[in-house]
Structures are given as structure tokens and as C-alpha cells.
Design a protein around this nucleic acid. Structure first.
Lengths: 136, 136
DNA sequence: ATTGACCCTGTAGTAGACTACAGGGTTTAG
DNA sequence: CTAAACCCTGTAGTCTACTACAGGGTCAAT
């Protein structure tokens, strides 16, 4: 089975070598096999896993959240019921984020059109209105 | 004009007093007027502004991003053209975030349905597929 | 055989976003 | 009039997520 060194994975996933070792310590990457000289030998799909991590991070998930999400799908020990519950909680989080972003989006779009070049009335600020709603 | 003390604002916005002073140092809140004893006197709409900050933070925006967003609407010095450009860049960011969240959402939903209680094939993992796509 | 580009472990430093004192003044209820 | 509950400034500590050494071994090419 073909494997990659840490440097090859780092380049492929556009992530630093030190960050990879950090992710391993933090449980986001399973400890890879080692070759006789002690070098880490990563399976090819590590790059895909790192792609997921990078995307999820950019969406505001913490590394702890991401570890949990990844474990939903890779941990064969996980109880299906609990997995399903967790997945559904995450779904709700994601829906809330999408809704908030859409509110923000339409507020920004509105202002982009309103501020056509002349000073608009700052007192009626759509972005504050759009997102200062009741608690989340 | 009615004003609020820092403690009243903190309670209303569900944010710590120390955090409010921190936000002021970081430029997210304009320095409020002071009463004769040196206490900060916040205008009523500070609570709304803080609501916006809290929401934007939960969507993965950094404090620097949020300060910039707020200045789009409250800085009368801002050049309209630059404002519009910045707003449009932010719009694009937001659209990208929404799209990524929607991919993640459908992947999670798919798995929630697939994992109906029996062990599924881990090798065909929809969530990794959904989000390990090409770079952002 | 040695140089340069890798790899290893372990520890320390950084940036962002708080959070917690220390040390001191003010207001208000009893 | 004094104790609790506020407010002030300033500095230091915490947590997350890296990022950067130090000190040393490995490998491929010249």
C-alpha cells in the first residue's frame, strides 16, 4: 500500500508539517504507521481528511468540534443512536449558521445598493437591524 | 439623553464588563462619553451593536473583520466607493461560507439517514466527500 | 564522505480573544 | 458611617491554534 511522508502530505494539503504533528497530538489525525526509521507513513486519504478539517475550520468550527465530527464517521466503536443524535445536533447548528449568514447577506446586499455613492442616513443601518436580534 | 453604565450594558448584552472594555480598546466600540466621576455612559443602542458583534463572532468572523464591517456603516469619513467594494468582498465571503455549510449540511443529513442503526460502510464516507473538495 | 533536504522529539513562543486580579475611587442601602 | 456593589486603570494569566526552534538522526546525490 502506498503511503506519503509528512512533508508530502503537508504539501498536498497545503498545511505546515508542524501543524500536522500538532493535529496528531490533538487527535484530529490518527497516529500513522511508522517505517523502520521512525518516519510517519500516511495513507493517501489523509489529504482528504485534512481538506475536510481545513473547510470545517473556515466555517468557524473549533478543532474539538471537528474531531467530534470526524469521529462520527470513523469510530467503529460509536453507538449508532448517540452518533445520530450528535449528527442531528450538528445539523441544527449548521442550519442556524446558514440562517444567520443569509440575514447578514441580505443586509449587506441592501446596503450595497442603498449606498450608491451619496451619504446614506447612518441612523437606519440595515446590518445592525439584521443581526442584532434576540439571543442565539 | 438616557445612558447606561458598563454593568447595565454588560447584563443587557450578556457580555462581561471586562470584555466591553476590551472591545473598546480594540476599536469595536467607540469610546463612550464619561460622567463627572469618570464612569462610562453608553448610549442605548450599544446593546444592539454588541448583539451584532456576538452574532458575527458566532459565524466565524474575527474581531478585526467585525470592526471593519461596523465601520462600513458608522464611519462618516468612509469613501462610498471603497465601502461598496469592501461590502461586495464580504458578500462573496458570506456566499462561500453559505455554500460550504450547505454542502456540509447535506452530507450530515445523508449520513443521519444512512446510519439507521446498523454499521454502515465507513469507506464510503459522505461527509469527507462533501467537504474535501478543491481548495478555497 | 559530506552537503542539503528531509525526518524525529520536545519545548517554547506567538496571536487572537478573552478573563482575572491588584489597587483604588464612588454610590447606595441599612 | 460603613459595607456591598459598583466603577476606574493597568497588568498579567488563560485557552486555542498554531509556529518556531534546539538538538539530533536519515537519505539521496555529488
Amino acid at each position: 500500500m502506498q503511503t506519503l511522508t509528512i512533508g508530502q502530505v503537508a504539501r498536498a494539503a497545503n498545511i505546515g508539517v508542524e501543524t500536522l504533528r500538532y493535529y496528531e497530538r490533538e487527535g484530529l489525525l490518527p497516529p500513522p504507521a511508522r517505517s523502520s526509521n521512525g518516519y510517519r507513513r500516511y495513507p493517501l486519504d489523509s489529504v482528504r481528511r485534512l481538506g475536510f478539517i481545513r473547510h470545517a475550520k473556515s466555517l468557524g468550527f473549533s478543532l474539538a468540534d471537528i474531531a467530534e465530527l470526524l469521529n462520527l464517521y470513523t469510530d467503529p466503536e460509536a453507538d449508532s443512536g448517540a452518533v445520530k443524535q450528535l449528527a442531528q445536533a450538528r445539523l441544527a447548528d449548521i442550519d442556524a449558521k446558514i440562517a444567520a449568514l443569509q440575514q447578514m447577506r441580505s443586509a449587506l446586499a441592501a446596503v450595497t445598493h442603498q449606498c450608491s455613492g451619496d451619504a446614506m442616513s447612518r441612523s437606519e443601518c440595515p446590518i445592525l437591524d439584521a443581526l442584532s436580534g434576540t439571543d442565539n
